[in-house]
Simulated assay, not measured.
Amino acid sequence: MMTFRDKTVVFNAPKVMGILNVTPDSFSDGGQFNKLDDALKQTEKMIASGATFIDIGGESTRPGATPVTLEEELDRVIPVIDAITERFDTIVSIDTSKSEVMLEAANHGASLINDVRALSQPGALETASRLAQEHNIPTCIMHMQGTPETMQDLPRYNSVVDEVIEFFRAQIERLTANGFEYKQIMLDPGFGFGKTLDHNYEILKRFDEFTQFDLPVLAGMSRKSMIGNLLNKGITERLAGDICVNTVASLAGASILRVHDVGEAADVSKIIEKLNQINV
């Protein structure tokens, strides 16, 4: 269970986080939803299909992506957050690493910070901590080796799962030492962020080990190259692979499935919920 401002979510089965990239260059849906009307229509569709969270991103973090300016990111996300929070009763997540975007997004109604850089940018830890303390806004901490520009340049680990677990342990200590309550932290092992194909599948196979912290763990594999490269499928042909990996992660204890295809992930969640209700 976790509280996002005044909304409490019970993770008796994985909840679905719908991806809404308001960017021109995201790897899968870049340019599709960077107009407000299109973003609202997609949000309505995702909520109707079963999304509990809408994750709004104004800066692509695909491999090789280059950063955008603060002003450009704010111009992309704030009008969308305003429009969504005015029209829909949902939990809005802001996918950003910039402290100023975190603060403005929260001021306009966002209830979760989703940071692929794990609050490492200037002012991010202090801002996220203040938002957690004053508004009960949790943060999702993701593991990434390198930066989006360099993360796929021959990533190496002695043991990828063990190193991600140690990263989580250190980040939990860091955040709780800086004002976070323990239950205001969410974890994301960062599929595709500084990992080879084998690294990604080792993380998936051992996903249950990340639940040892008794914190929600997010699985974000939607349409990623770990599916496309293994199955030799283009971005628009990866749905079956998505359903498969989301099911594996769900059975291993994933709390949130971050996806483009919400309806199919919601079906996975309903089946997992039913299985969890069966006593044998």
Rank of each mutant, 00 (worst) to 15 (best):
196 T>P: 07
189 P>I: 13
164 V>L: 06
40 L>M: 05
270 K>W: 12
279 N>T: 11
199 H>E: 10
108 H>M: 02
15 K>Q: 08
53 F>H: 09
58 G>L: 03
134 E>C: 13
187 L>K: 04
228 G>E: 10
59 E>R: 01
127 T>P: 01
211 T>A: 05
37 D>Y: 09
37 D>S: 08
220 G>H: 04
212 Q>I: 10
269 S>V: 14
229 N>S: 15
126 E>L: 09
93 S>Q: 02
52 T>M: 15
6 D>Y: 11
132 A>S: 07
95 D>T: 00
163 E>P: 12
158 N>M: 13
28 S>Q: 10
148 P>V: 00
280 V>Y: 07
35 K>A: 08
160 V>Q: 09
108 H>A: 05
263 G>D: 11
266 A>N: 11
195 K>L: 09
255 S>A: 06
207 F>A: 04
259 V>I: 07
51 A>M: 06
163 E>H: 11
152 Q>R: 12
58 G>V: 00
103 L>R: 07
208 D>E: 10
85 T>C: 10
19 I>T: 08
69 T>Y: 03
113 I>H: 01
106 A>L: 03
14 P>G: 09
204 L>S: 14
228 G>M: 11
179 G>R: 07
4 F>A: 09
211 T>M: 01
5 R>H: 15
47 I>V: 08
46 M>A: 11
42 Q>R: 11
277 Q>A: 07
33 F>V: 00
185 I>S: 09
114 N>T: 07
30 G>Q: 00
5 R>V: 10
194 G>A: 04
190 G>E: 06
60 S>Q: 01
195 K>C: 08
192 G>W: 07
74 L>G: 02
83 A>Q: 02
22 V>M: 00
106 A>Y: 03
261 D>N: 14
131 L>Q: 01
221 M>T: 07
126 E>G: 06
147 T>W: 00
270 K>V: 12
182 Y>V: 10
211 T>Y: 04
272 I>W: 04
116 V>S: 01
44 E>L: 12
183 K>F: 12
180 F>M: 13
141 I>P: 02
199 H>F: 05
93 S>M: 01
226 M>R: 06
82 D>G: 09
22 V>E: 00
274 K>S: 14
7 K>N: 14
26 S>A: 00
191 F>L: 10
202 E>H: 12
22 V>S: 00
145 Q>G: 04
6 D>G: 14
198 D>S: 14
